[in-house]
């Protein structure tokens, strides 16, 4: 406690004696200059100032809504560390910051709009849902991606339709953010699109679609099983693992047909799915496979699986 006081006093002394200079050049008003001077410490990464960083952030946050316009300006910084500091301060300010942040979603600079969307998502403030939906089809992909992420984090079902549309975005990063949001919002109507995304060309959307389906749970099982023999092998591969992660008897039995695949990698994934499913129902199929299997990696997983369920 004493050391915190010392740190704070040192910090105040620095400010009083003008040792702290401005973080950016274009601060004009005394308030902006004050914020900038404290922000130098709030965004410092140096070891020797680490104990002063949080008090400095608190100090700016204590200014409340008044500080928000300047903080939004500071989002234009080229330094990731500074942008992170702005986010953290805005989170500390909380709901009071929202009116200006919502208004700022209309700014021209996409970097600012993207960071603001992201921050609103972190703040999980539902008052901005309509504004985010309006911004979600921005021409810049970074903004679309941030909006999808934010809508997912806020968790308001009003965003379902927007998220489903973003699942088909031309940019993989946006599709991936939308898949995450679909999982967070548990959008049942997105299951078909998410299953299709298991075969996405880019691993981000593919893996996030799988996670979304796992979150949605049992409703996803049948559509996934129906797609295991898709021409796009990634759909079947990832489908097996997704079923394993959803777990249960239906999922375990659902991958059974894949143990007959000619491709050993697919057989590995099918056995691995049984291993993960926590269902011993498909063990018979695994034992059957063992009789004919020659691939060492498949055998490796067969043994692991049979060992796991041996006691059941």
């Amino acid at each position: 406690m004493i050391s915190r006081k010392i740190v704070f006093v040192t910090f105040i002394i620095l400010i009083i004696f003008g040792q702290v200079v401005f973080a950016v050049d274009d601060a004009v008003t005394p308030l902006e200059k004050k914020i900038d001077s404290i922000f130098v410490i709030a965004s410092s990464a140096e070891l020797k100032y680490r104990d002063m960083v949080e008090p400095a952030k608190d100090s700016i946050a204590a200014m409340g809504a008044e500080a928000v316009p300047r903080l939004v300006e500071l989002f234009r910084s080229n330094t990731a560390r500074e942008k992170r500091a702005v986010e953290q301060i805005l989170k500390k300010i909380g709901h009071e910051a929202m009116p200006y942040l919502r208004k700022s979603l209309l700014l021209d600079d996409y970097r600012q709009v993207s960071r603001i969307s992201y921050t609103i998502g972190e703040m999980k403030d539902s008052s901005a849902v309509a504004d985010l939906i309006n911004t979600a089809f921005h021409k810049n992909w970074q903004v679309r991606s941030s909006c999808a992420g934010a809508l997912g984090k806020i968790g308001d079902k009003a965003a379902d339709e927007t998220i489903i549309l973003l699942l088909a975005d031309s940019v993989e990063t946006v599709r991936q953010a939308a898949a995450v949001a679909a999982g967070r919002l548990l959008i049942d109507t997105a299951i078909e699109k998410l299953v299709h995304m298991l075969g996405d060309d880019f691993y981000g959307p593919r893996m996030c679609a799988a996670n979304a389906l796992i979150k949605i749970g049992h409703k996803s099982i049948k559509p996934i099983i129906d797609s295991l023999d898709s021409e796009n092998s990634m759909v079947g591969d990832l489908g097996c693992i997704t079923l394993g992660n959803i777990g249960g008897n239906l999922a375990a039995l659902g991958v059974g047909s894949q143990m007959k695949s000619e491709n050993p990698a697919r057989r590995v994934l099918a056995v691995k799915a049984v291993l993960q499913s926590n269902s011993s129902l498909a063990c018979g199929l695994v034992e059957l496979l063992k009789e004919t299997e020659t691939d060492p990696v498949v055998l490796f997983y067969i043994d692991k699986t049979l060992e796991k369920y041996a006691s059941r």
Binding site: L14, V24, S37, V40, K48
Partner: peptide
Amino acid sequence: RTAEVIDSIQKAEE
């Protein structure tokens, strides 16, 4: 150097 001096040097370099 103090954080503020380093920050101002960094800003000058930017």
